[in-house]
Amino acid sequence: MNPKNTLNKRVLVTGGASGIGAAIVQRCRRDGYTPVVLDQYGEDSIICDLTDPESTVSALKLALQEGPITRLVNNVGAVFPNTLTEQTLDEFNAAIALNLRSAFLCTQALIPGMRQSNFGRIVSISSRAALGKESRTAYSATKAGLQGMTRTWALEEGRHGITTNTVCPGPIQTELFDFANPSESPSTKAIISSIPVQRMGTPSDVAHAVSFLLDNNSSFITGQSIYVCGGKTVGAIHD
């Protein structure tokens, strides 16, 4: 089945009511898709608790009542900043539940419809922190886990016309970033000064990369991680 000839233009976006997710939703609309948002709030969202498997599965069943959804953006996430010695088990488990398990459940639910359509686009929002960052034990573990799942899914699902990739934001100006990186903190100032393009990223920068990977024409790109980080993953500006 050629996706260009179908009426299925829906995109499931988790955590699409604010921040990067809201920018992705806005870009999807601009690209001609119909976003279906799963979030804990939002006027146009299917309300659910993405940390809770039963709530997530119920929301997914509701989203799929109108038929398969062949594009998915696993965007929802939270940081839980803490050092290794201070990170609590509750924080670690919460990070796994929201950042990693929700992506597993959403992808698993949508895969049958994608296989039936012989077409699918899965984009998961990872992070530059997957490469390592202080005070990010739980966060970096789950974001690196997204990349590992993505590579595995690429191997399993490519034969079905399904691509699966991650977009890995660096410093992006959002409420989540501000919460984890207080503006007056020396470490926050160091982050901003170390970005090669000399500016913070915006949610629309991330949404642009997601849009590229959701496109029909991105069928030969799978299992990849695209860093939207202003060059911060390349190395240090100053020795």
Rank of each mutant, 00 (worst) to 15 (best):
P112M: 07
V25D: 06
R128G: 12
P112T: 09
A59V: 00
E134T: 06
V73A: 13
R27T: 15
S204N: 12
L64R: 12
E156C: 12
A97R: 10
E184K: 02
T85E: 11
V25A: 05
Q147P: 13
L84W: 01
T164L: 14
A59L: 01
L38P: 05
G42E: 02
G15L: 02
N5K: 14
S18C: 01
N5Q: 14
S187F: 03
N118W: 05
T85A: 05
V25W: 13
A95G: 07
L50M: 07
S225C: 06
T222L: 09
N2C: 03
S124N: 15
A63M: 09
E54C: 01
E43Q: 00
N93A: 14
A94Q: 14
P186A: 02
I191R: 08
F177E: 01
C48V: 03
N8V: 12
N5F: 15
R27K: 13
L12F: 10
F80W: 13
Y227Q: 06
N99T: 03
G231D: 12
V25L: 12
L84R: 00
S127V: 13
C106L: 00
E157W: 15
V167N: 12
N93P: 02
P81K: 01
A130G: 08
C106P: 03
S183Y: 03
F80L: 02
I172Y: 14
F92Y: 14
G19T: 05
R30A: 15
G42V: 02
R199H: 00
A144C: 12
V13W: 04
E175N: 15
P81V: 01
K133P: 03
V197D: 04
S55P: 07
N74S: 14
A94C: 09
L62N: 00
